[in-house]
Amino acid sequence: MKFCDECGSMMQTEGDKWVCTQCGYETLRDEAAEAEMVTTQAQEESEIIESGGGSSGLPTTSANCPNCDNDEAYWYMQQIRSADESETRFFVCTECEHKWREDDH
């Protein structure tokens, strides 16, 4: 992927040139530089490694499910508010798959 030197937008290939989709800036392609670029095809071919959390692939922890009183849950963290706020921790019960969250205050 190449970005425009003029406006910063993503460029597309057209023959032996890179062309900006926004401002029309053009530059010649460099095969050596393009060989160094990582493509989505290369990412798709990589091996996926599962991290032990059973069939969900999520790690487990001790947590009391408010729905069925099971004492084990999968967990993950997700940014749901603005970037300057802390992440929210989500839990999924390993028995009934009830989902709840825990906010850091």
Rank of each mutant, 00 (worst) to 15 (best):
M1N: 07
K2V: 15
F3I: 12
F3Y: 13
D5T: 08
D5G: 14
G8A: 10
M10F: 13
M11Y: 09
M11P: 10
W18A: 03
W18Q: 01
V19M: 07
C20A: 08
T21G: 10
G24H: 05
Y25N: 10
A32G: 01
A32Q: 06
A32N: 03
A33K: 09
E34Q: 05
A35F: 04
M37F: 13
V38N: 08
T39V: 03
Q43M: 15
Q43K: 14
E47T: 14
E47D: 06
E47Q: 15
I49S: 05
I49N: 01
E50T: 14
G52M: 09
G53F: 00
G54P: 05
G54R: 01
G57L: 06
L58T: 00
P59V: 00
T61M: 10
T61L: 07
S62G: 09
N70R: 01
N70G: 03
D71P: 02
M77G: 11
M77T: 11
R81K: 14
E85K: 14
R89N: 02
F90T: 04
F91Q: 02
C93M: 05
C93F: 03
C93Q: 04
T94D: 03
T94Y: 05
C96V: 13
C96W: 12
C96P: 05
H98V: 11
W100H: 08
E102G: 13
E102T: 10
D104I: 08
D104H: 05
H105W: 13
